[in-house]
């Protein structure tokens, strides 16, 4: 079994960090994980269009839009995709919570992030 995850963030070091954290979850997950990266809403939508994702983790504040746009687009395509938002200000997006399975509050810590990924992939 292979799970496919899309991570979206316009900050390179965060994207890199998330990929590494997922990589280390993979080591003891018991299934393969493929990670795709995007830094804009446009890139993310293209990837969502071309692939089926088990999980999308998106920053809320992107250069060409918000994480909610990606969430709506992804849910229209496949309701089974789990979607998590990553934001410094969760309270700002309270009204959009319905589109997401979880809100991760930044700053993200490896231990917490990994645990959340595990839960979202298994749940």
């Amino acid at each position: 079994m292979t799970k496919r995850i899309l991570i979206v963030d316009d900050v390179e070091f965060i994207l890199d960090f998330e990929a590494k954290a997922i990589e280390s979850v993979k080591n003891d997950a018991g299934f393969a994980i493929v990670v795709d990266k995007a830094s804009t809403v446009t890139d993310a939508k293209e990837l969502v269009d071309a692939n089926r994702y088990d999980l999308i983790i998106s920053d809320m504040n992107l250069p060409d839009g918000t994480g909610t746009e990606i969430a709506k687009f992804a849910l229209e395509k496949d309701e089974g995709t789990r979607i998590a938002a990553l934001t410094i200000y969760p309270q700002r997006y309270e009204g959009e919570r319905g589109y997401f399975d979880a809100f991760f509050k930044k700053p993200i810590l490896p231990s917490v992030f990994k645990e959340n990924i595990r839960l979202l992939l298994h749940a």
Binding site: K20, L109, P110
Partner: peptide, 14 residues
């Protein structure tokens, strides 16, 4: 509490 795990992650992954 999670610091050791986090540090381990950085040492390994980075």
């Amino acid at each position: 509490n999670g610091f050791m795990e986090d540090l381990e992650f950085f040492i390994e992954s980075y």
